[in-house]
């Protein structure tokens, strides 16, 4: 059983980036200077990811204002909408307003992904994208499409992005799907989600595809999560009892969110490993991914970095032979 460790998505901005982006808003610096800082901070984070043996790497997705912004800004049919609460957190996103069935604009999103933003080749980077169900559920749909049709369409469009990013060399795709566990779809909504992921799976081919859930207990959604045609499904261990994962079908990959981004307390690797082992013993996954239980951008930079040490330590306990348990 392979054990991988990787970041889940956006990392906090460093204090220097906080200052610089504030200054940019106040007209005290220019975009070129902030861009240089984005790149150097992304490279700094790559070094941290190296140090903690986190691969594939992310560079922190530091330029993304929220999970949907690059899409809302670059795909057709969207308007960047009002400030809206991001699940049960004190962070917000600008809710995309969809006025017409969306369409991709080829080539428009590649500049937002790690290989374009930091010094990491695409084949060593993780492309993190919104999952189709979460994307559809979190936008303001005024397009006239039914929710199910929208999920299906977004799946096809995201598959298009996957195809394009694969062409650029990306080999790992992660879909952020908190809504799958905070508001699990049933009936036609569930089926359209599966259909969306079939489109994505076709585009992904032999690349690794991950669905990462967080902010909620995955147990009620396990039957659906087990049907998604992806390499592995991630669950948030701060919300999900490991013993409930016995309901996950065997022979699939599982991911475990071992770091809780909502607390600065640093996780004990022994306890984290024990929780993962309890789940692994029941679900018998083919591969295991360890990461934060959600994007760490709910923490300040230093606190997030402090917590990362628990990941390689947990991995070492699970896979003392360096990757394979």
């Amino acid at each position: 059983m392979e054990v991988h460790t990787s970041l889940t998505g956006p990392f906090p901005r460093s204090e220097a980036l906080v200052r610089a982006t504030r200054d940019l808003d106040r007209g005290r610096t220019d975009e070129a200077a902030v861009d240089r800082l984005y790149r150097s901070t992304g490279d700094e984070l790559l070094g941290i990811e190296d140090r903690f043996q986190l691969a594939p790497q992310t560079g922190g997705y530091l330029t993304w204002a929220d999970l949907f912004r690059p899409f809302a800004m670059n795909w057709s049919g969207f308007e960047v909408g009002p400030v809206t609460r991001w699940f049960e957190t004190n962070t917000f996103y600008r809710q995309p307003i969809l006025h017409a069935p969306p369409e991709r604009v080829a080539g428009s999103l590649a500049p937002w992904f790690p290989a374009a933003r930091a010094s990491v080749p695409a084949h060593r980077a993780k492309a993190a994208l919104p999952g189709p169900f979460t994307f559809a559920g979190m936008l303001d749909n005024r397009s006239g499409e039914t929710p199910e049709a929208l999920v299906h369409r977004l799946g096809r469009l995201l598959a298009g992005e996957v195809g394009e990013l694969r062409g650029l060399g990306y080999r790992t795709f992660q879909f952020q799907e908190p809504l799958l566990v905070t508001r699990p779809p049933v009936g036609p909504a569930a089926e359209s989600t599966i259909a969306a992921y079939r489109s994505i799976a076709e585009a992904a081919g032999d690349a690794t595809s991950l669905v990462w859930t967080y902010f909620g207990d995955a147990q009620p959604a396990l039957p659906l999560l087990g049907r998604l045609p992806v390499s592995a499904v991630g669950v948030d261990l701060a919300e999900t009892e490991p013993t409930s994962l016995g309901r996950f079908p065997p022979g699939r990959g599982l991911g475990f969110g071992c770091l809780d981004p909502r607390t600065t307390l640093v996780e004990d690797p022994q306890e984290a490993a024990a929780r993962v082992t309890a789940a692994v013993d029941l679900a018998r996954p083919t591969e295991v991914w360890l990461g934060p239980g959600g994007p760490l951008d709910l923490l300040p930079w230093d606190a997030a970095v402090r917590k990362l040490a628990a990941l390689p330590a947990t991995r070492a306990l699970l896979a003392p032979n360096g990757g394979s348990a």
Partner: peptide, 17 residues
Amino acid sequence: LLGHVRSFDNKYYLKGA
């Protein structure tokens, strides 16, 4: 007080424990 956390866009607040 520990460091800044983003609220949205380029808006942040200093968050403590």
